[in-house]
Design a protein around this nucleic acid. Structure first.
Ligand code: MN
Ligand code: MN
Ligand code: ZN
Ligand code: ZN
Lengths: 164, 164
DNA sequence: GTTGTAGATGCGATCATTCGCATCTGAAGC
DNA sequence: GCTTCAGATGCGAATGATCGCATCTACAAC
């Protein structure tokens, strides 16, 4: 366990060319966590690295599987708790895109949302500007600050609408 | 089992003054189901009756508990499956209001949504009109028909915003 | 470098929800 | 009424997600 952690820290703090968005590497990720009063544990850095390496809309189990390959002692609960923490910190978004499993996405790209067809399952990107009227109404009417990071709106796409 | 069902049908088909919204009684509910090609099983009528009797924003387990009191043979899975069916039919809305449990609400009142403060848990009603811009954008840009029945938007209420 | 400690992790139990499958039944047709 | 069978239910197992608690560790203070 101690061995695992030490070796992981070594791997994680080595700069790496595979870490892409905003050209960050692991040291930066660790400092980013520390700067917001969070501990930079190896497990947390592994979760962030999984997002960098893999695509978007990952499930907790996809992240866990990816991490387990190289770090078999990391626990599934820790992955869930880390995702919860990152979600609360605004580092990632948690979204139910249908299919009964929650999916997670890094929030370092431009903010966007999705239209999800519950007939064919197609997922359409939706620009964030369409949510401004809601944010404005919530703020003006109730002084409420709406935090809508990555919304999934269900309905029927143009092709499935013609079907019936 | 057979006895239970027969007696339940008797109870359920008796007109009752406790069934309120749109002045319907159980026969009407059964016919409403049949008219859309669905079977009017005693279990389904019990789920609908639970919504009529109890308040809003019920969890599956609250509905199950209510039904079990008088009809102990009804199964939890059936309640879940019935809620899923009714949700797909547009009879009820399924919403995650935080707290990790999904909540269900009859869709016979005027359509509305909620602002949920993730600091204090307060739930504010939000009129449906604020969602029109999204529906319009989805339709105009993508021909997508958005079905937003009972949305929960998370964020921070005016009181918790001042706290930090 | 050592120490102290708040906070994170591993682990197993538990909760919320879904699924497979054998059985049962609502309701349509006769 | 009786028959028929697609579809609904009960049941138990499986999956997704959370929690309690003992142990461990990141990192701040010295
Ligand atoms: Mn996305
Ligand atoms: Mn409501
Ligand atoms: Zn479609
Ligand atoms: Zn609040």
């Amino acid at each position: 366990m101690r061995g695992f952690l030490r070796s992981k820290v070594r791997v994680l703090t080595a700069s790496s060319p595979t870490i892409s968005p905003p050209d960050q590497h692991y040291d930066d990720l660790a400092n980013r966590l520390r700067s917001i009063g969070q501990r930079a544990t190896p497990q947390r850095l592994l979760v962030l690295a999984a997002f960098q390496d893999a695509g978007e809309h990952l499930t907790a189990d996809e992240i866990y599987a990816r991490i387990s390959e190289r770090s078999p002692t990391v626990n599934r609960s820790t992955v869930y708790r880390t995702l919860e923490t990152f979600r609360d910190l605004g580092v990632i978004a948690e979204t139910d895109l249908g299919g009964g499993v929650r999916r997670y996405q890094l929030l370092d790209h431009e903010r966007h949302h999705h239209l999800v067809c519950h007939d064919c399952g197609d997922i359409i990107d939706l620009d964030d500007d369409v949510l401004e009227p809601i944010r404005r109404a919530a703020a003006e009417r109730y002084g409420f600050s709406a935090e809508i990071d990555h919304l999934a709106i269900f309905g029927r796409c143009q092709f499935c609408r013609g079907d019936e």
